[in-house]
Write a protein that binds this DNA or RNA. Structure first.
Length: 152
DNA sequence: GCCAACGTTGGC
DNA sequence: GCCAACGTTGGC
């Protein structure tokens, strides 16, 4: 069992948007970073815990709890010339990018980035580290437990 | 809109 | 394989 923080732009897919979908599940398309891809492809397991994080918005922070709902499979937007995620070097035979399904479990209060930053117990989180841009980062079991307490 | 930080690309 | 140039991310 692993834990993750996954960034989504709420203008694109907010926690409310995902909760409104059938099965409250969304395909996490559009990851175009090798490290984040490798997390999905090589490490994620169905049932892993996910912190649903809103980024690039007025109030960045953790907005909900979710879980990994599938293993990794090819992200079909890489094959679509009309998609902004199109990758001309990817082919059906050798896909380059994958995605997983993520099931939203509940909306929480917004635990803002500023509040996360203010808590010494969470100081090691990847999203707080200088220059961090990874859209998918592992969260330790200790951090997860702390966060669950804060989001109760 | 700014800009620091970082990843990717491509010429050599 | 180096590294400069470029593009992207994302908080502010």
């Amino acid at each position: 069992m692993q834990y993750w923080l996954m960034k989504s732009e709420p203008a694109d897919a907010s926690i409310d948007d995902v909760l409104a979908l059938p099965k409250q599940t969304i395909a996490w398309y559009g990851v175009r970073n090798y490290q984040a891809r490798n997390f999905m492809r090589d490490v994620m397991r169905v049932g892993d815990g996910v912190l649903f994080y809103h980024s690039s918005c007025a109030e960045p922070g953790i907005a909900g709890i979710a879980e990994v709902a599938s293993t990794a499979y090819p992200d079909d937007t890489q094959f679509d010339p009309n998609s902004k995620y199109f990758d001309p070097k990817a082919t059906q035979e050798t896909p380059r990018w994958v995605m997983v399904d993520v099931r939203a479990l509940k909306k929480t209060r917004l635990l803002s980035l500023a509040e996360i930053r203010s808590l010494p117990a969470l100081a090691e989180m990847r999203i707080l580290q200088k220059g961090n841009r990874l859209s998918i980062t592992p969260v330790s079991a200790v951090e997860w437990k702390c966060l669950m307490g804060l989001l109760k």
